[in-house]
């Protein structure tokens, strides 16, 4: 699937993550800010990467501001942003 336009999902609330997706030239790049970067940064990126792969998304730049979201929230917010970015309405 191709991301057609920039999209976003999530909030800046504690335990949530704010995700922005931008169309990018054929590669996935992740820029992550997180309050738990040192302890969970790798895991957060992995969850985002896996979710993008599950949805066959290849051409995105992900900018994420994490406020301590658990994996299920990260997945949900990425999926929501994908759904919003791949549709034309």
């Amino acid at each position: 699937m191709k991301l057609l336009k920039p999209s976003k999902a999530g909030t800046y609330e504690s335990n949530d993550i704010y995700i922005m997706l931008f169309p990018n030239d054929d590669e996935i790049r992740i820029e992550l800010e997180s309050i738990v970067l040192e302890t969970y940064g790798k895991q957060i990126k992995k969850v985002m990467m896996d979710t993008l792969n599950d949805h066959n998304i290849e051409n995105v730049l992900v900018k994420a501001i994490d406020k301590g979201a658990l994996d299920y929230t990260i997945r949900a917010r990425v999926i929501t942003a994908i759904n919003r970015g791949v549709s034309n309405d």
Binding site: A9, L70, Y72, R75, A76, I79, T80
Partner: peptide, 15 residues
């Protein structure tokens, strides 16, 4: 609405 639906779905799938 869609955002919440997806979040609740992911919640039940993992916790």
């Amino acid at each position: 609405k869609a955002s919440a639906r997806i979040l609740v779905k992911e919640l039940f799938s993992s916790i």
